[in-house]
Lab assay of single mutants.
Amino acid sequence: RDLEAFAERFKQRRIKLGVTQADVGSALANLKIPGVGSLSQSTICRFESLTLSHNNMIALKPILQAWLEEAE
């Protein structure tokens, strides 16, 4: 599925960039996405391991996609 593929790709890119889950969570606040502050390390972990609810995964995907584009 698309979400699973993105979560795996996100994790691989994050590791390759040398960024921790906690770093991603705090960096999201710097993107200044309306309504989005920082996220906890555990939320990033649960996204990568696909243990969040489907609706949460869908909500987080564009936010994490934006971070990934900014980081690369």
Results as ranks from 00 to 15, higher is better:
R1T: 09
R1V: 11
R1D: 10
R1L: 06
R1A: 15
D2F: 05
D2V: 06
D2G: 08
L3T: 06
L3I: 15
L3S: 03
L3P: 03
L3R: 02
E4Y: 15
A5E: 06
A5K: 07
A5F: 14
A5H: 11
A7S: 04
A7E: 04
A7Y: 04
A7V: 15
A7F: 00
R9K: 13
R9H: 15
R9M: 15
R9D: 15
R9F: 06
F10C: 01
F10L: 00
F10S: 00
K11F: 02
K11M: 02
K11I: 08
K11A: 06
K11E: 00
Q12R: 12
Q12D: 10
Q12M: 09
Q12Y: 04
Q12T: 14
Q12L: 11
R13F: 05
R13Q: 10
R13H: 10
R13I: 14
R13V: 14
R13T: 09
R14W: 00
R14P: 00
R14Q: 01
I15A: 08
I15R: 07
I15V: 05
I15G: 04
K16I: 13
K16G: 13
K16W: 05
K16H: 14
K16Q: 13
L17A: 05
L17N: 04
L17K: 07
G18P: 00
G18H: 07
V19Y: 15
V19H: 10
V19W: 12
V19K: 15
V19S: 11
T20D: 07
T20H: 02
T20G: 05
T20C: 06
T20L: 03
Q21P: 09
Q21F: 05
Q21I: 15
Q21W: 08
A22K: 11
A22H: 12
A22W: 07
A22F: 12
D23F: 08
D23H: 10
D23S: 12
V24Y: 00
V24Q: 00
V24N: 01
V24G: 00
G25P: 04
G25M: 08
G25L: 12
G25V: 15
G25Y: 05
S26F: 12
S26G: 09
S26H: 12
S26L: 14
S26D: 11
S26T: 11
A27L: 07
A27D: 10
A27W: 09
A27E: 12
L28F: 08
L28G: 02
L28M: 13
L28Y: 02
L28K: 01
L28R: 03
L28S: 03
L28H: 01
A29I: 06
A29M: 12
A29L: 09
A29N: 10
A29P: 07
A29W: 01
A29Q: 15
A29F: 03
A29G: 13
A29Y: 09
A29V: 08
N30Y: 09
N30T: 11
N30A: 10
N30C: 11
N30V: 05
L31C: 11
L31H: 05
L31G: 03
K32E: 14
K32D: 14
K32Y: 14
K32Q: 13
K32L: 07
K32V: 13
I33H: 05
I33C: 05
I33T: 06
I33S: 07
P34L: 07
P34K: 13
P34S: 11
P34W: 04
P34R: 08
P34F: 09
P34T: 07
G35N: 10
G35E: 05
G35A: 06
V36T: 05
V36D: 07
V36K: 04
V36P: 06
G37Q: 13
G37Y: 05
G37D: 08
S38N: 15
S38K: 10
S38T: 11
S38C: 11
L39D: 05
L39R: 02
L39T: 08
L39F: 09
L39N: 03
S40D: 14
S40W: 01
S40Y: 02
S40K: 13
S40C: 10
Q41L: 07
Q41H: 15
Q41P: 12
S42A: 12
S42W: 06
S42N: 07
S42P: 05
T43F: 07
I44L: 05
I44F: 00
I44A: 00
I44W: 00
I44R: 00
I44P: 00
I44Y: 13
C45Y: 15
C45K: 11
R46E: 09
R46A: 13
F47G: 01
F47P: 01
F47L: 04
F47Y: 04
E48L: 00
E48W: 00
E48H: 01
E48R: 04
E48M: 00
E48T: 00
S49F: 03
S49H: 03
S49G: 14
S49M: 04
S49E: 15
S49N: 12
S49R: 14
L50N: 15
L50A: 13
L50Y: 04
L50P: 01
L50D: 08
L50E: 06
L50H: 12
T51W: 01
T51Q: 12
T51Y: 03
T51K: 15
T51C: 11
L52F: 02
L52D: 04
L52Y: 00
L52Q: 00
L52T: 02
L52K: 09
S53A: 09
S53E: 12
S53D: 14
S53V: 04
H54G: 06
H54F: 11
H54W: 10
H54A: 13
H54M: 13
H54Y: 13
N55Y: 02
N55C: 08
N55Q: 15
N56C: 15
N56Y: 07
N56A: 12
N56P: 04
M57G: 05
M57Q: 01
M57S: 03
M57F: 05
M57A: 06
M57H: 03
M57N: 09
I58F: 07
I58N: 11
I58S: 13
I58A: 10
I58W: 09
A59I: 14
A59Y: 13
A59W: 11
L60H: 00
L60V: 12
L60Q: 01
L60C: 10
K61N: 05
K61C: 13
K61I: 06
K61L: 10
P62G: 03
P62E: 04
P62Q: 03
P62D: 09
P62N: 05
P62M: 01
P62H: 08
I63M: 05
I63K: 04
I63W: 05
I63D: 05
I63V: 13
I63R: 06
L64E: 02
L64H: 02
L64Y: 05
L64V: 07
L64T: 02
Q65L: 08
Q65A: 11
Q65V: 06
A66R: 13
A66Y: 07
A66M: 07
A66L: 07
A66Q: 10
A66D: 15
W67Q: 15
W67S: 03
L68T: 02
L68N: 08
L68P: 03
E69W: 07
E69R: 08
E69V: 09
E69G: 09
E69Q: 13
E69T: 10
E69K: 04
E70D: 08
E70Y: 13
A71S: 09
A71F: 13
A71Q: 09
A71D: 03
A71Y: 15
A71H: 08
E72H: 05
E72T: 04
